[in-house]
Design a protein around this nucleic acid. Sequence first.
DNA 1: AAAACAAGCTAATGAATATTAGCCTTTCGA
DNA 2: TCGAAAGGCTAATATTCATTAGCTTGTTTT
Lengths: 207, 207
Amino acid sequence: MNTKFRILDAALTLFSEKGYHTVSVAEIADAVGIKAPSLYKHYKSKRDIFNGILSEMQVRYEKQTAALQMNGSNPTADAGIFSSVTEDSLIQMGIGLFTYFLHDDYVCRFRKMLTMEQFHDAELATLYTKQYADDPLSYQSQIFSMLSACGLFRTAYTDVMALHFYAPLYLLLTLCDREPEREQEALLLLEQHIKQFNLIYKKENTQ
Amino acid sequence: MNTKFRILDAALTLFSEKGYHTVSVAEIADAVGIKAPSLYKHYKSKRDIFNGILSEMQVRYEKQTAALQMNGSNPTADAGIFSSVTEDSLIQMGIGLFTYFLHDDYVCRFRKMLTMEQFHDAELATLYTKQYADDPLSYQSQIFSMLSACGLFRTAYTDVMALHFYAPLYLLLTLCDREPEREQEALLLLEQHIKQFNLIYKKENTQ
DNA sequence: AAAACAAGCTAATGAATATTAGCCTTTCGA
DNA sequence: TCGAAAGGCTAATATTCATTAGCTTGTTTT
């Protein structure tokens, strides 16, 4: 029963460390504690395991984004929530997103895997862009347009604001994926970045 | 003679499209127009071809950065060059860097290859970080510290300024690597980003 | 001109690897 | 309790692939 899931998990770990093609089904089986042919009782091929990981991520991702997308549906209705945006809460939002992306077990392994596989398939390419560029950017953009509407932030192109806020986070994230030992340095820079961002975009009179 | 180079070139193309492990030596040979065993007259193994690509890139990269690193050596001595930094020249610098990274034949294929191989080897990881994060950031940081010193730009943490300037460029670059058809959209956003950046950091009195 | 070398080829080798066949044991619903 | 399904195993298969051996041919060096 849960062997099926343990296979997925072991495969994801291996794929995220060495890439799909470099990992043999024997290795996956080994990590699970069974022999290679037994895998085929659960998945009909190696590719099928990979697809299983994709579906699993699909489910988790939709759950995660649904939780964020302001369940009240109408964005401006929730504007009150933001009546007290402080520098600290902005920092917390940034650092929170960063550490979630970097340390969530599934998210982190999945991103590394997708990084390596993105050019093998147009579908994987768009999935990557959606999860790590388009969706975060449009989410941030939405938030900043609310903050502008409330008069808390300067009015500016919210697309550009979102890019200013999120792109450094993204760059530092991919850096830490490669060199985890530089996380402290990255966090420091990220915090400085957000302070600077806050200084730039927050309206003076509401300080 | 130039077969040796043609092998490197064909291999880089294939590696950048499909990743090192997915490409067979037979495929590389085919692309060059010879048979697989003939490759071994020029390189002693598949890995050796890969290493050849790395060395070739090393040479090109050093040539390229040497050309940028202000051959006059002392940065502040060249401050005069920047006496007339306009919004347009800043945009040109950004767009120029972006299109160079995106369209230079060698740079572009190499980056895609490195993107796929970065987790296979700590050395490749640091190489990636150096070329697409550390070096560009410290270069931009240097420029902004000069611009600040000249009184053209606000004084601020130049590391953060560099991050603000470069990170969006990096994000859009990786996006276009995956989805080249979105280049126009990316260029537009990049231009808006730089205009906004200029507005934020340039001293009002020098407008 | 002869020897040596460069650079191509075909054929062979050997290892890795995904997948299938077929067998055995345990579990469990009828 | 019996039959079948679930889930494990070993052994076999077939394919792909990097690499080597050894031959040929044209060019270069002596």
